[in-house]
């Protein structure tokens, strides 16, 4: 379903989904007519109750799943996908894990080394390059996963609750890192999360989805200019936007019930 077209000529890569529906073979309706677009340097966050098809939507955007109907248009050649769990190869060192995607794409060894080194530096794990993933904490493993995706230099970034399994503090720290990384090298990004605060802090646009079948019930533009500082999280304006999004979320859940 992923089509390449010539829009790359006008500006950077884009990702557009239109009228995407997904009905499983057993008749379960997971997604109903979902559409959104992400341009270069934008981050669309998707929040919604669990089971609303957020992950399915992201998989469809990446081409890992086929929509039952609707279209996915992407001008991104390389899609970086960060999964809910770190999904590292336990028998490889941290460095070799970070090199994996480049290795699969046939990047020459010297360049692999260099890019992996930079990515590890970015996520602050250079000292652990020779460790096995089994020796790292959950948060560190997630950072390795992030480094693996970044080292591949993707044109678009899809993040499926990447910090979902982590504690609040680690999670905020990684959120800050992600914001800085995206500011340093803009590209279209989609973040699925169940934390409204995380969504508001990181996104340019937040989409609120209803429970199954997942539909977009609200689209909230986030007014804060980037790059955002950590202190933003404790301002009243931030709290107001979070409350607004949360209100939409609850209304969406009430409608479905």
């Amino acid at each position: 379903m992923t089509e390449l077209n010539a829009t790359a000529v006008r500006g950077g890569p884009r990702l557009d989904l239109a009228g995407v529906s997904k009905v499983y073979e057993d008749g379960t309706e997971a997604l109903a007519e979902v559409g959104f677009g992400v341009g270069d340097g934008e981050l669309v966050a998707i929040v919604g109750p669990s089971g609303c098809g957020k992950s399915t939507l992201l998989r469809i955007a990446a081409g890992l799943d086929e929509p039952t109907s609707g279209t996915v248009r992407s001008t991104a050649d390389r899609i970086g996908y960060v999964f809910q769990d770190a999904a590292l190869l336990p028998w490889r060192s941290v460095r070799a894990n970070v090199e994996l995607l480049m290795e699969l794409r046939g990047t020459p060894r010297a360049e692999r080394r260099e890019r992996a080194g930079r990515a590890l530096d970015l996520v602050g794990l250079t000292a652990f390059a020779r460790h096995r993933p089994g020796a790292l904490s959950g948060g560190m493993r997630m950072r390795v996963s992030l480094a693996r995706t970044l080292a591949d230099e993707p044109d678009a970034l899809l993040l499926d609750e990447p910090f979902g399994a982590l504690d609040e503090i680690t999670r905020a720290g990684l959120g800050d890192e992600l914001a800085a990384l995206l500011a340093a090298r803009p590209r279209p990004a989609v973040l699925v999360t169940h934390s409204v605060a995380e969504a508001v802090f990181l996104a340019s646009t937040v989409l609120v989805m209803s429970a199954r079948p997942g539909r977009v019930v609200a689209r909230v533009e986030i007014p804060f200019p980037g790059p955002r500082e950590r202190s933003l999280r404790s301002t009243p304006e931030f709290a107001e936007v979070v409350a607004d999004v949360t209100g939409h979320l609850y209304r969406g859940m009430a409608e479905a019930a």
Binding site: G63, I79, Y81, F83, D85, L104
Partner: peptide, 11 residues
């Protein structure tokens, strides 16, 4: 998930 990682890299 690892299978997906490999698929996305078109391995």
């Amino acid at each position: 998930t690892l299978e997906d990682v490999f698929r996305l890299a078109r391995a």
